[in-house]
């Protein structure tokens, strides 16, 4: 990242002063929740605390509002996104919902390529916001959606291809907001940061800023244990199209989580902690506990991308 890109992004963020009553102004500043019962249940040392950033408090219901808002604002500022244009991207769900909401607010048509096995709830939410959908081969997963978005972008010069996997405004959103919120809310006491890898934006941006604030903070990137998994929104990096914004050198530790362990944790979080979370959030908590079991003291913070409502059809809740 050059200093120039950074400055551009900062000014994009500040360029339009947000009315306090606008929907966009509600993006970010999410609560940081202590997971005390989960700590006890996992038998962690008394000096170890677990915290999760409750990202479902964002207006479209997920962490993706942060990246979508910064991508849109940065593109508006640089003139790449202008009134009357169509915002195009590939998504497995949450990013699309964030684009669809913000596109409606800011007056853009939103067109999304998503895998045909995205959940019906997501598809219905996207359509309700008025987004145009292109469903790609479910056998190809999210990489198939990426390829279709690239193809559509090349064919249509009037589209703004938001390109969340390669757009620095994605990770910069977390550099400017998520990391600083975590630092403030943990009163600078954070010792470990854990986040799942999808586009890798959350991990990259938050880690880069946290390392500036305190280079001793250890960072853990969590990913599925296999290319074939049920962890919505996460990528098995060794087998996926590598996101341009992902720097494999940045994580101190890379930790793999099995889908069934995330499912079990999702049920525990609901019943023990009263937190009905999405599968990737539950997977992040699994990674936190695996890490925290080896600590005598520390403050472990993770990002909980969304809550569980969009995953209600999954059979594992009833197991």
């Amino acid at each position: 990242m050059t200093l120039q890109t950074l400055e551009k992004s900062v000014s994009a963020f500040n360029a339009h002063s947000l009315s306090r009553n606008s929907l966009e102004a509600q993006v970010g500043n999410t609560p940081l929740l202590r997971l005390e019962k989960i700590e006890r249940d996992a038998g962690l040392a008394p000096g170890v605390a677990l915290y999760g950033k409750a990202e479902w408090f964002n207006p479209s219901g997920s962490v993706k509002d942060r990246a979508a808002l910064n991508i849109i604002r940065t593109a508006e500022w640089s003139g790449k996104l202008r009134p009357g244009m169509t915002l195009l991207d590939s998504t497995s769900g949450n990013m699309g919902i964030a684009y669809a909401m913000l596109g409606t607010v800011r007056g853009y048509h939103v067109k999304l390529a998503l895998p045909g096995n995205a959940s019906p709830e997501r598809i219905d939410i996207l359509r309700t916001y008025g987004a145009e959908l292109v469903l790609t081969d479910p056998l190809e997963g999210s990489d198939g959606a990426i390829q279709e978005a690239r193809r559509l972008a090349q064919e249509n010069p009037n589209y703004f291809y938001a390109n969340q996997y390669n757009n620095p405004a994605n990770w910069l959103a977390h550099y400017h907001t998520t990391a600083n919120e975590i630092w403030r809310q943990s009163e600078g006491k954070i010792t470990h940061f854990v986040a799942g890898l999808g586009t890798s934006g959350t991990f990259m941006g938050t880690t880069r800023r946290l390392k500036e604030l305190d280079p001793r903070i250890e960072t853990v990137a969590m990913q599925p244990d296999s290319p074939f998994n049920g962890l919505e929104g996460l990528k098995h990096m060794p087998s996926a199209i590598p996101p341009g914004i992902y720097d494999p050198q940045l994580p101190d530790i890379i930790h793999a989580v099995r889908t069934e362990d995330a499912h079990e944790m999702a049920r525990r979080l609901a019943r023990l902690e009263g937190l009905f979370l999405g599968i990737s959030a539950a997977a992040a908590v699994v990674a936190c506990i695996d890490l925290a079991r080896e600590l005598n003291e520390g403050v472990v913070v993770t990002v909980l991308p969304d809550n569980g409502f969009k995953y209600l059809r999954e059979r594992f809740w009833k197991e």
């Binding site: 096995n117 959940s119 997501r122 598809i123 074939f228 995953y311 209600l312 059809r313 999954e314 059979r315």
Partner: peptide, 10 residues
Amino acid sequence: IPSIAGGCLL
């Protein structure tokens, strides 16, 4: 097909 989010389409 991995369900990802329980999906099957009409």
